[in-house]
Design a protein around this nucleic acid. Structure first.
Length: 680
RNA sequence: GCGCCCGUAGCUCAGUGGAUAGAGCGCUUGCCUCCGGAGCAAGAGGCCGUAGGUUCGACUCCUACCGGGCGUACCA
């Protein structure tokens, strides 16, 4: 990276000296093939244009490139420079020198004190956010894996990040399940507790609620899925919702039990995927602590007003000039309903203002769960905690500089409203502080529907995919899919490695299953809709996580057979004097040298790919890179007998390259949340 | 109607304004002499939705059109 910056400066200086052109921007690219060079500057095209503009003189890009060539060639790291194509300036590194530098361990970052850490700008990422009323499905998994990987990528790029998982514990969806327990099953809180304790581990509480939630949907329709909802029965939902908001009654207690138990189940599911959180802000506390202040600020800023006429009479609304009124509805967005209750969007604005430190208020917290490594997830509470021990131990949450909300693209309108609300209340923070990390939904392919035994309507059959629906109980549960992946991986591991203990086999199978799942969810760019297909999701071959893991495992097996001493010697050879360097150059210049070299430059690109992936908030960039690197390594592995190589220079090169690539690949996978097992 | 997203190989998808548009799956054909075949290699397969424009240069940017998806709630 530093080297590239140095070369950039040289080109810019030469352009100024020889042609009198100051280039503010200078693009660099990687040539399509190694034989063309390691770095290309299309600068001559730009210069030709600028010279013509300034003087009217027409100069050939190739001739311009020729004039710049010498300046680049004089750099020590550069072996040679060629002018190619219509006028590219293509640069070739000194391969021996480059390899020696690439394998040097990165400088250790100086240890930070807590005070230093607290002073750094904080990014907040909110993800998962599953309604706590049923088991998580694969759509929720895409959200969580995307969010978690984005966090890992930002941390790898050196950022300070806080992870939040918003719990909508007082919403309609929770109320629906409570209606189910109370009015379909005629259960009290004690009954539900007893039921929960009696459920088998393979059909836990969140699974039970999944089915119950679907039954409630039918209940509202008097048992006919195609019928309209019965207003009498919907009244039960309204009453339940009201009781939950009121608090301090049996219904609210049941709702609290349900939502927290389900949240616990969700955290269990996410823990299987190595996904963890710092804090769980709940809607109940946002309403209790944050709403009044946020409401006042919105009124003061004039971003919302009280509507006295029309369809929205009696509501507090935010005008949305990006939208137009239609026959069905006004363009304004309702924030407070005419009955005085607050819409989801209203609560979301309050939450967002808190996340950006704009309300000057905080929640109370208590520990929700402690992970095996001691990390604590906190949950917001109304009262100071007395079971949490030392209040000073609570980290300072919120007040982020930038907030990323991982939410699917169907909610982009709501997110736009939130952003505008924040911008109006806190112009100094502005719209830029709120980022909607939008992604496409996970739908079911026709084949997946067939597997699940879902009967499709004629209309649905004509479509490429079918939307999942929690309300209808239509979808693939996250734990079911993970279970199937683990079963398949275990079967494979047992047959490949009968010599391993059962624990080791299970551990390897788990790593493979998670690798497969995380990679499957990350390989698509954010905007694309995933049409979920079992065969594809369960595959361990081709462009998959296990393919990448396998490459790293094979690399590790080389070093199991090699002495520690041999690696040290190989590295010493690469680092040694001019004589060894010229022998190394000969290796790269010899047959298959370009292929070896392209593997080195690809592996060396990890840091810039991580930076790019973080900057674009696009984990797929890193996922594709990991796959590409694994593919290149597999080819290398196939072509070269590393341990058997007798030529000293060649052997040293092969060993250090294999070691370098496995370290970079392992780091890339780890940033994707994919662990490399010992054997698989 | 309005807003956002998407049309690239048989299928599913990558593709910073730049050089010969790539991958996986599927299909055809080869490869265990071992550091692991969850692998490697080769082959077939493309008016990059259509038509204009900008540019030295367009899959990429702009405009129009055609086709698809999702929003556009006093649901969350």
């Amino acid at each position: 990276m530093e080297l590239q910056e140095k070369l950039r400066v040289r080109v810019r200086r030469a352009a100024a000296e020889k042609f009198g052109v100051e280039l503010e921007q200078l693009s660099m690219e990687v040539p399509p093939r190694t034989e063309l060079g390691d770095l290309a500057f299309p600068v001559a095209f730009e210069l030709a244009k600028r010279i013509k503009q300034a003087t009217g003189e027409k100069r050939a890009p190739r001739a311009i490139a020729e004039e710049l060539k010498a300046e680049l060639e004089s750099a020590a790291e550069v072996a040679r420079v060629e002018v190619a194509g219509a006028g590219y300036l293509n640069l070739f590194y000194d391969r021996a020198l480059f390899l020696a530098r690439a394998i040097e361990p990165a400088d250790e970052a100086p240890a930070q004190t807590q005070a230093d850490e607290d002073a750094r700008p904080k990014r907040i990422v909110e993800h998962t956010n599953i309604n706590p009323n049923k088991a998580a499905h694969i759509g929720h998994l895409r959200n969580a894996v995307l969010g978690d990987t984005f966090i890992r990528t930002m941390r790898a790029a050196g950022e300070r990040v806080e992870v939040e998982n918003y719990i909508d514990n007082t919403g309609v969806q929770v109320a629906d399940v409570v209606v189910g327990f109370m009015h379909i099953e005629q259960m009290t809180l004690e009954d539900v507790r007893r039921l929960d304790a009696s459920l088998p581990p393979e059909r836990p509480f969140d699974y039970y609620c999944w089915d119950l939630y679907a039954r409630v949907g039918l209940f509202y329709r008097n048992g006919d899925p195609d019928a309209k909802e019965d207003p009498e029965r919907l009244k039960l939902r309204r009453e339940t919702l009201h009781a939950i908001e009121e608090g301090a009654n049996a219904t609210a207690e049941l709702a609290d039990y349900v939502s927290m138990r389900i949240t616990d189940c969700h955290l269990d599911t996410m823990e299987r995927l190595d996904i963890r959180y710092d804090v769980l802000p709940r809607e109940s506390e946002i309403l209790y602590f944050m709403w009044q202040r946020a409401f006042e600020r919105m009124k003061e800023s004039g971003v919302i007003h009280f509507q006295t006429e029309g369809r929205n009479a009696g509501c507090w609304v935010m005008p949305m000039d990006t939208h137009t009124s239609t026959e069905e509805h006004e363009a304004d967005k309702v924030i407070v309903r005419s009955n005085g209750t607050i819409t989801y969007t209203g609560k979301d604005i309050a939450y967002q203002l808190w996340k950006l430190g704009q309300l000057g208020i905080d929640f109370y917290y208590k520990p929700f769960r402690t992970y095996p490594d001691g990390h604590v997830v906190w949950v917001s509470t109304r009262e100071p905690s007395n079971d949490g021990g030392d209040a000073a131990a609570v980290p300072h949450f919120g007040a982020g500089q930038t907030v990323y909300n991982v939410i699917d693209s169907r909610q982009s309108y709501t997110q736009e409203v939130v952003r505008r609300g924040v911008e109006a209340v806190a112009p100094e923070v502005g719209e830029a502080a709120s980022v909607h990390l939008s992604y496409g939904m996970v739908a079911l392919s026709p084949a997946a529907c067939a597997v699940l035994g879902i009967e499709l309507s004629e209309e649905d059959r004509a479509r490429p995919f079918v939307e999942m629906s929690g309300r209808k109980g239509l979808g693939v549960k996250a734990d079911d899919l993970i279970n199937r992946l683990e079963e398949n991986a275990l079967r494979e591991t047992v047959s490949r490695h009968p010599e391993l203990s059962a624990d080791e086999q299970r551990e390897a199978a788990h790593a493979v299953a998670i690798g497969a799942l995380r990679y499957f969810l990350l390989k698509w760019t954010r905007t694309s809709v995933i049409a979920f297909d079992f065969q594809e999701a369960l595959s361990f071959e081709g462009e998959t996580g296990p393919y990448c893991q396998y490459a790293a495992v094979r690399a590790n097996s080389i070093f199991r057979k090699l002495d520690e001493e041999e690696l040290t010697q190989a590295r010493a050879f690469v680092h040694a004097g001019t004589d060894e360097a010229s022998q190394l150059r000969a290796v790269f210049d010899g047959e298959g040298g370009d292929e070896l070299w392209s593997l080195v430059t690809l592996a060396a690109r990890l840091d810039e790919v991580v930076a790019q992936s973080a900057q674009q908030a696009e984990p797929a960039v890193l996922a594709k890179y990991a796959f590409q690197l694994a593919r290149a390594f597999n080819l290398f592995y196939h072509r070269h007998r590393i341990i058997a190589e007798e030529n000293r220079a060649r052997r040293s090169a092969l060993i250090t390259i294999a070691d370098f690539v496995r370290r970079q690949l392992t780091r890339a996978l780890s940033t994707l949340g994919i662990h490399v097992p010992e054997r698989m």
